[in-house]
Design a protein around this nucleic acid. Sequence first.
DNA 1: GATAGTGTTGAAAACTTTTTCAAATTTATA
DNA 2: TATAAATTTGAAAAAGTTTTCAACACTATC
Lengths: 339, 339
Amino acid sequence: MKRKVTLKQIAKELDVSISTVSKSLKDSPEISEDTRKKVRAFAKLYNYKPNLIALSLKNKKTKTIGVIIPEIIHHFFATVISGIEHIANEKGYNVIVCLSDESFDKEVINMEMLANGSIDGFIMSLSKETQQKKDFHHISEVINQGMPVVMFDRVANDILSDKVIIDDNLAAFEAVQFLIDKGFNKIALISTIDYISVGKLRTEGYLKALRSNNIPIDESLILKIEDMDNCSDEIELLLKNNTFDAIFAVNELFAVTAIKSANKLGLKIPEDISIIGFTDGMISKYSSPSITTVSQNEIKMGERAAIMLIERLESEEEDEEHYKTEVIGTHLVERESTL
Amino acid sequence: MKRKVTLKQIAKELDVSISTVSKSLKDSPEISEDTRKKVRAFAKLYNYKPNLIALSLKNKKTKTIGVIIPEIIHHFFATVISGIEHIANEKGYNVIVCLSDESFDKEVINMEMLANGSIDGFIMSLSKETQQKKDFHHISEVINQGMPVVMFDRVANDILSDKVIIDDNLAAFEAVQFLIDKGFNKIALISTIDYISVGKLRTEGYLKALRSNNIPIDESLILKIEDMDNCSDEIELLLKNNTFDAIFAVNELFAVTAIKSANKLGLKIPEDISIIGFTDGMISKYSSPSITTVSQNEIKMGERAAIMLIERLESEEEDEEHYKTEVIGTHLVERESTL
DNA sequence: GATAGTGTTGAAAACTTTTTCAAATTTATA
DNA sequence: TATAAATTTGAAAAAGTTTTCAACACTATC
C-alpha cells in the first residue's frame, strides 16, 4: 500500500526545499528548468495530487456546496439535486447533501455542522416543521457570518437571501383555467394544510381562477389533507359525497390517489372526471391513465440555484442589497387524465 | 456581519495564549478554574465552534463519506442514500454525493477529486460504462492508498473490497418460481443487455427457474433491451408476436411499459397476463394495476453499506484479508398485476 | 576588482487546531 | 529562608499547502 505523497516527502527525497517543489509543480519561472523537470517527473511517478483539505484551510474556500433538503426519495428533490450537481461539477464544486427528514432540529444541526468550515455556501429547501414553526434563526445566523444561502421551492419570505421558486399561485391558476376552458365549472381541489407554503399558494391560485371566471366557490369541493400517508380514505369520501367534473390536485400523490379512488367507485378518468396534478415525476408519467400535470422544471431550478450561489461565491463585492428571487417558468404537460 | 471567531482571536482578546484557550474549552484540569470560566464565557458569547477543516487536517480524518452513484433520480439510488444518510448522521459523518451520470470518465474524475483528502472512505455503485469497460483501476488505486471502499448493487467482482448486494439470481428465481407455482409455464422475460451485472444475474435466475421446473426455454420469449428510453416499441412487438401467460421484467420501467403495451393491445392485466417487476418504487406502487415486484430493501442496503464503511474506518487494524460481502434479503411484494 | 544585476533556492509565515514539554509562578516543607 | 513540589501558562510543532522575501551564487559592467 502506497499512501498519498506530500510536498514534504518529495522535497526530502530530492533534497530540495518544500517551496522549490511547490513552485516547480506550478511551473514557476523562478525555478531552473533542470530542477523543474526533475521535480515534475518525480511527482508524476508518485502521482502527487495536492491535498484539498490543506488547500481549503489555506484559501478559506472549500469549493464545496452544502445542500439541505427535506427528503431525497422525492423525485422533485432528487431532480433538483441533479441540476445542482450538473452545474457544480462544471464549475469544479463538490456537493454535500444533508437530509432534514422534515425535522426542524435536524435542519439546524446539519446547518451548524456544515457552517463550521466544511462548505462555501448553502442551497436549501425548508423542512415542513421549520415552515410550521417559522423559526429561521439558524439561517439568518449563517447569512450573518457571511456565508451565502440560496433557498429554493420552500423558501422563507422573512429571510433576505437569493431564492429560486416557481410561481405556484400562477401555475395553479393556469392549470385550473385550463380546466375551465375545457368547459368544466365544478372543479374540486385536493390540497395540503396551509402551513406548507406551496400548498397554500396553489390553493390561492385555484381560488383566483374560480373567482376570475365568476364560478362560485364550493367549500365542500375543497379538501385539505394533513396526513399524506393516509390520504386515500379522505379522497374517496370526497369523490363519493360530491359530484364534480374535474379535480386539481396540488401534488402527484393526491392526483394518482384520486384516480385509484375513482376507478374503485366505477368512475372513468378522464370521461367522468378530468384530473390535473402538480410535479412531473414518475407517478404522473407511468400512472394509467397518465396524468396531466404542472411541470416545475426541477432541473432548471437546481441549475439556477447553483449558478446563483456560485456567482455570489466568486464575485468579490458582497452586495447584500441585491438579493434576487428568480422565478422558474412552469408548463402544463397534457396527458391522458384530462379530456 | 460577524465572521466566525477563532481560538487566536479569543486568545488575543483575553490576552492569554492559544493553548490556554484550547485547553480551557476542553475543560482541561491543567488550567485554573478562573481562566477556564472566563474563556468559556467569552467563547459562548461569540458562539465559538472549532473549524472542521483545520481539525480534518490535523486529525487526518474528515468524518465525511463519499458516495458515488450513477443517477440520483432513480428511486433505488435515492433510497439507498437515505439509508446511508441515516447511519452517517447517527455516527457523526457527513455525506458527499457525486453522480457519475453512467459515465466512466465522470466516475474516475469524481473519485480522484474526493480521494485527495476530502473524505475518509467511499460507498459506490458502478456506472454502466464502467461495467461495460471492466476498467476498475481507479477503484483499486484508491483502495491501494488505504482508503476503504464499499460497493453496493452494481459491484465489481474483480475488486477486493467490502460489498453489499442482493442475490439477484435467487430473487429472480423466486419471482419466476412464484409464477410457475401459479400454474404458468409460458413466461416471457424482459431484461437488459448482459453487461449490466444485475440484468445478467436476473436473467440467469429466470433461466434456472425454468430449467429446474423442466420448462423448455423459448428464446422468442426473451427480450434483451439496450435502449431504456425507447423500450416501448420492442415490448409491444414482443406482446404482439407471441402468446404467453406471464412476464418477468428485470425493472420497474419494463414492467409498467409492458402493462401499458398490454392495455393498448386490449390485453387485461392480470387476467390475460400476470406481470412481476423488480424494485419497489413509485411506479410499482402507483401504477394501475399496481405491480407485484421484488423489493430490494434499499434502505437496509444503504444502512449496511454505511455501517460496514464506518466500522472499517474506526477499527484500528486493517485486516485487508477479511473483506465481507453482505447479501441483503429480498421479498416479493404481491400487488394487482399477478393473479 | 568592486558593484550591480540576474538567476536560483530556501526559510518562514499564514490558515486553525491539538498536544507536548518547558517555563514561570505559587505554595508547601524542612 | 531556601528548597522542593505543585500549579498554571505558553511556546512550538504538527498537519499540507502557497507565497513573500531574504539569501546566495553567478555573470556582466565599469
